[in-house]
Computed example of a mutant assay.
Amino acid sequence: MTLPVFVDVDTGVDDAMALVYLFASREAEVVGIASTAGNVGVQQVCENNLGLLELCKVGDVPVSKGSEQPISTPLRTAEDTHGPEGMGYARLPRTDRQLTPYDAAEAWVRAARAHPGELVAVAAGPLTNLALALREEPALPKLLRRLVIMGGAFDYRGNTTPVAEWNISVDPEAAAEVFAVWGSAWGLAPPKHVPIVLGLNLTENIAMTPALLSRLAAEAESSSLPMSVLDDRGTRSVASNPLIAVLEDAMRFYFEFHFDQNEGYLAHLHDPLAAAVALDPDLVACRATTVDVELTGTLTKGMTIADWSNRWGREANALIGVGVNPELFFDRFVTRVGAFAKRLYS
């Protein structure tokens, strides 16, 4: 059975890897892409999404532009992490594809209404667009089959502040709105509509390495040279397969960033895990609880709090990812994306 999938991204290296995974998955039909300001500005995110559709030879998938700013805080971007255009050292092909005439919030609502009870949604960037969509259609939770959010850090350090994860930190007010609406929607929708939330405590277990990239190139039957921390910065891919070359050029920048952060010559694939879980929730173990977002703390703004002990006495509004098998994820990722790249450019 093919699942209609709607994706909200701030593309971004790992967002791009998530999109490619979905394009490569035969059970997924991507029916819309919402562009969110985050890793780079929203216009660049739009260009990246359109360029990826061109590179991957995907059909007419609607791409919509979201708000240029978070709901109430100034936009911060992360070119140091993802490169000046969000794709590391990679360059995407030019395309004549156009954005939709409607914005990303409306795109959420249109997709949900077009596929009531069937739509699988992935929110892999700041939650600005989703919060605005919920203002337009408060019944959105009961229209979705499943929602997976990549965001937060639960009993775990942050990657933007000591306690806050990037996606939540960019627009904490939007995240607070989303979790509040899902909490109030509990009586409207069955528990299956409670979002699956994958925080850094889970996604940082998904570490791409040069060895795994070499496996991906081999699966695609592409010529390639293994990456090494000893390579010159910015060394470009020599992969014969154009998709593998783009992924390698993007990932090299990401490797270098993580290395400079003293995390090793690797990169965490936060968003591809969210994409994979959207298609197969059994990839992760989850625990139901209530989640809220700190908005006023001087040192803790953007922190996600999970009420594991039910101190608040509120209904659970999230399923928090607490366990994952990285080997299983990467086996699936390498097999799917490698075969996809081979089909595209054999």
Results as ranks from 00 to 15, higher is better:
Leu3Asp: 08
Pro4Thr: 14
Val5Ser: 01
Val7Ala: 12
Asp8Gln: 14
Gly12Ile: 10
Met17Pro: 00
Tyr21Ser: 03
Tyr21His: 13
Glu27Arg: 11
Val30Trp: 01
Thr36Phe: 02
Val45Lys: 04
Cys46Pro: 10
Asn49Cys: 15
Leu50Asn: 06
Gly51Gln: 14
Leu53Gly: 00
Leu53Cys: 10
Pro62Arg: 05
Ser64Val: 12
Ser64Gln: 14
Gly66Val: 08
Ser67Glu: 13
Glu68Val: 05
Pro70Glu: 11
Ile71Cys: 10
Leu75Phe: 06
Asp80Lys: 13
Met87Ser: 10
Gln98Tyr: 02
Tyr102Cys: 07
Trp108Ile: 08
Arg110Ser: 15
Ala111Val: 09
Ala112Tyr: 02
Ala112Ile: 06
Arg113Thr: 07
Arg113Trp: 03
Pro116His: 05
Pro116Asp: 13
Glu118Cys: 03
Leu119Phe: 03
Val120Ile: 10
Val122Ala: 03
Val122His: 01
Gly125Asn: 09
Thr128Trp: 11
Leu134Ile: 05
Leu134Cys: 07
Glu136Asn: 13
Glu136Thr: 13
Ala139Asn: 10
Leu140Asn: 06
Met150Thr: 12
Gly152Gln: 11
Ala153Val: 01
Asp155Trp: 02
Asn159Ile: 01
Thr160Ser: 11
Thr160His: 11
Thr161Asn: 11
Trp166Gln: 12
Trp166Tyr: 08
Ile168Thr: 15
Pro172Cys: 07
Glu173Phe: 11
Glu177Phe: 09
Phe179Ser: 01
Ala180Cys: 09
Trp182Met: 12
Trp186Gln: 15
Gly187Phe: 14
Gly187Cys: 06
Ala189Cys: 13
Pro191Ile: 00
Lys192Trp: 05
His193Gly: 08
Val197Tyr: 08
Leu198Ile: 15
Asn201Phe: 04
Pro210Gln: 07
Leu213Gly: 02
Ala218Thr: 06
Ser224Val: 10
Arg233Val: 14
Arg236Cys: 11
Ser240Met: 09
Asn241Gly: 12
Leu243Val: 15
Leu243Met: 14
Ala245Arg: 15
Ala250Thr: 09
Arg252Ala: 12
Arg252Pro: 09
Glu256Asp: 14
Phe257Val: 08
Asp260Pro: 02
Gln261Tyr: 00
Asn262Gln: 14
Asn262His: 12
Glu263Asp: 14
Tyr265Ile: 10
Leu266Ser: 05
Ala267Tyr: 01
His270Leu: 06
Pro272Tyr: 02
Ala274His: 03
Leu279Lys: 03
Asp282Gly: 02
Val284Pro: 02
Cys286Glu: 12
Ala288Leu: 04
Ala288Asn: 10
Thr289Phe: 01
Thr289Glu: 09
Asp292Met: 07
Asp292Leu: 13
Val293Ile: 15
Gly302Gln: 00
Ser309Arg: 15
Ser309Leu: 12
Arg311Met: 02
Arg311Asp: 07
Ala318Gln: 05
Ala318Cys: 11
Gly321Ala: 06
Leu328Cys: 03
Asp331Ala: 12
Arg332Val: 05
Thr335Trp: 07
Val337Tyr: 06
Phe340Trp: 08
Tyr345Thr: 11
